[in-house]
Computed example of a mutant assay.
Amino acid sequence: MQPSRSLRFTFLGIGFLFLYIPIISLIVYSFNESQLVTVWTQFSLKWYRALVHDEELINAAWLSIRIAVFTACASVVIGTWAGYVLARMGRFRGFTLYAGMINAPLVIPEVIQGISLLLLFVEMAKVFGWPAGRGMFTIWIGHVMLCISYVAIIVESRVRELNPSIEEAALDLGATPLRVFFSITLPLISQALVAGWLLSFTLSIDDLVLSAFLSGPGSTTLPLVVFSRVRLGLNPEMNALATLFIAFVTVGVIAANYFMQRSERKRMTKVL
């Protein structure tokens, strides 16, 4: 016997409330005048003004955003080729090893990845004198290593859904494989690329473990600053900063969905 429609909507509503009530309460208390995070007194923009003058938080947020953007771009470029090879090149010699290496960061704990990269950079600095110190570049390498796997899986699943006859027809008409990839395959998987970019951006800006191992003096990311402050007690500035990030991400996701849907409608119109 299947559950009734009202019962399904009830459970769905409970699930959404469980997910979004903490976020809504965080946004509401970011406008609280009291220094106690959980005690409401009156509406105020006090903590947003304090956030503007908090150089440590602003610098950490700006560093995290830059690393996340660079990570997302690099991960999409490398992960797209990796996913395309998995989906289109068949089972070549070494395919199992290749697929395993692509999927390894998904199952290896970040602590192990962080220690491995740290030891690698330390030994490289001894032998080659590079990198001279840990900072934004080493964090970026670690985040790219983590995010490539996610992009590759997304792209692989999308490429497998494509009708290969379209690419074959272009090859029969004289197009080179590289031209087919950039002119036909890439536009068809553009939604997967956007999804991979957004996921990589989120994973990078939220990462704490890898950043803790790969950061150095002057390269403290936002999660590291927030984690160090939260251990000493909740600060209303965190609510204000989190609210700004939620607004930024929401606008970005809505804009990405709008442009993806518009491009899909245009593509379907041309097909029809």
Score class of each variant (00 low, 15 high):
58 I>H: 05
127 V>L: 14
164 P>K: 08
163 N>R: 11
107 V>Q: 04
168 E>F: 09
113 Q>F: 07
155 V>H: 00
21 I>W: 05
41 T>G: 08
174 G>Q: 06
99 A>N: 13
68 A>Y: 00
159 V>A: 05
132 A>C: 06
72 A>H: 06
94 G>H: 02
220 T>K: 15
2 Q>N: 15
161 E>T: 15
221 T>A: 00
255 A>Q: 06
257 N>C: 08
35 Q>Y: 05
151 V>Q: 00
203 L>I: 12
53 H>G: 11
87 A>S: 10
80 T>V: 03
17 L>P: 00
115 I>V: 14
69 V>R: 01
196 G>S: 02
164 P>H: 06
150 Y>P: 00
2 Q>P: 15
160 R>T: 14
153 I>H: 01
219 S>F: 08
119 L>A: 10
210 L>A: 10
208 L>C: 03
133 G>M: 12
95 F>G: 01
210 L>V: 15
222 L>I: 02
102 I>R: 03
243 T>W: 11
118 L>H: 06
217 P>N: 12
142 G>F: 03
85 V>M: 11
45 L>D: 07
68 A>K: 03
207 D>C: 09
60 A>Y: 05
231 R>N: 06
245 F>C: 12
163 N>G: 07
254 I>M: 12
66 R>I: 03
114 G>P: 07
251 V>F: 14
62 W>D: 07
271 V>A: 15
173 L>Y: 15
19 L>I: 14
4 S>L: 13
21 I>V: 13
37 V>D: 01
47 W>S: 06
223 P>T: 04
227 F>A: 14
170 A>Q: 11
192 A>M: 09
16 F>H: 01
205 I>Q: 04
122 V>I: 08
24 I>F: 06
35 Q>A: 04
2 Q>C: 11
213 F>T: 03
61 A>H: 04
62 W>V: 15
126 K>F: 08
61 A>Q: 05
132 A>K: 11
38 T>N: 08
259 F>V: 09
131 P>V: 00
223 P>L: 09
178 L>W: 09
254 I>C: 12
66 R>L: 04
262 R>P: 10
243 T>S: 15
2 Q>T: 13
46 K>P: 14
139 I>N: 00
208 L>F: 12
32 N>H: 12
79 G>D: 02
219 S>V: 01
168 E>G: 11
97 L>E: 06
10 T>G: 15
67 I>L: 04
128 F>R: 12
130 W>P: 01
